[in-house]
Design a protein around this nucleic acid. Structure first.
Lengths: 193, 193
DNA sequence: ACAAGAACAGACAGGTCTGTATACTTCAGG
DNA sequence: CCTGAAGTATACAGACCTGTCTGTTCTTGT
């Protein structure tokens, strides 16, 4: 089997370890040495696959976007069987996430804060991710409102972002219920008109 | 003139400089050496007033809470003359903040992310600040809804928190308009019933 | 069997970080 | 005038950081 750069086992181990540690303890407080130790990989292997820590950070963000999409796809399918709308399934999935062990908020929000510099490639990717996430959310609302979703989707997005940071700070998932109730009310309201 | 620890000029200079640098570039990426250089203070003076960097972080958070309160007090008074409600004045003040040069989101949200550890005294203070801020917000809504404010205030809080992180990530203050319109609608809705 | 690529192992350079130690200056009150 | 407090200046310890370098071992295709 040919081991190309993109499918190398060592590379994958580095990526998964970095993603986990960055999320747990923060990008800046996790050093290269710790990543290679926990990934059981030589330092030179890491720098063969990723030119610098900044590049590794960017790679983990891309990796995590896939994971996030997969998580919501799976969790929403699971909840979709007993919820009336996709939006309800989404909030149920969101609650699952908030309640999952080690929950520490949105990795993309956190990266934006930690990187601080808007010029950093990571900050740019975060911006793109949030745009894609918002479009995903709009798609769910279109199930109920069609093109009228554009009127409420941005506000629902803010509720979701706000619920994430609030849940982290409060150390409790309760904010998701507030966000869900408000979002569903807004959608119902828009439908009624 | 007796120079007590709490009013020392050097201490104040350290506090203001640390607050500015921490907000600009992030708590973890700003070192003690840079703070003392820009504050024009000796290192020993800093450690006389603050036992450790962690303690300095906590002190800057407390200092900033006062500044935030003062800012909103002033800005809302300014806008209050031509807005119908205190809540509208609040969102006008929020927009001023988003548009101010060097805006980089909520220092307390950012601190919570950067500190990562929920056990850190700073994380605890952030939690308290957000509770106080939420009560302040509830108070504004009570002007329109009385005790009924409790029904919508938490959701308005999420809209505000979401608008802050979104504005930072997008690099644009537009989110505040979305949050304001949604919040006013929710309040009007609750009043109508 | 052997060459080549991939990963491992570990030392090292050069810088930064927090916090401490030591010695000097400035200045106000009794 | 002198004592004590506050601040200054600077060197240093010890840890940690990213990234580089050298050399070895393992695996795989030919």
């Amino acid at each position: 089997m040919e081991r190309t750069k993109a499918t190398s086992e060592a590379r994958q181990r580095i990526l998964e370890t970095a993603d986990r540690l960055f999320y747990q303890d923060g990008i800046r407080s996790v050093g290269i040495d710790r990543i290679i130790a926990e990934a059981a990989v030589a330092k030179m292997s890491l720098y063969k696959h990723f030119a610098s820590k900044d590049e590794l950070i960017l790679a983990t963000l891309k990796y995590r976007e896939e994971k996030v999409l997969a998580f919501f796809g799976l969790a929403m399918e699971r909840h979709g069987k007993r919820t009336k709308t996709k939006l309800r399934a989404f909030f149920a999935a969101l609650k699952d996430w908030f309640e999952s062990p080690g929950f520490r908020g949105c990795a993309f929000q956190n990266a934006a804060v930690e990187l601080a510099d808007p010029q950093h490639p990571g900050s740019d990717f975060v911006k793109g991710h949030k745009r894609r996430f918002q479009e995903f959310l709009s798609g769910l609302i279109e199930e109920s409102l069609g093109k009228g979703a554009a009127k409420v989707a941005p506000a629902v997005g803010l509720l979701v972002e706000g619920a994430i940071v609030t849940a982290v700070i409060q150390g409790s998932p309760d904010a998701v219920d507030v966000a869900r109730d408000a979002a569903l009310k807004m959608v119902a309201e828009a439908k009624g008109v």
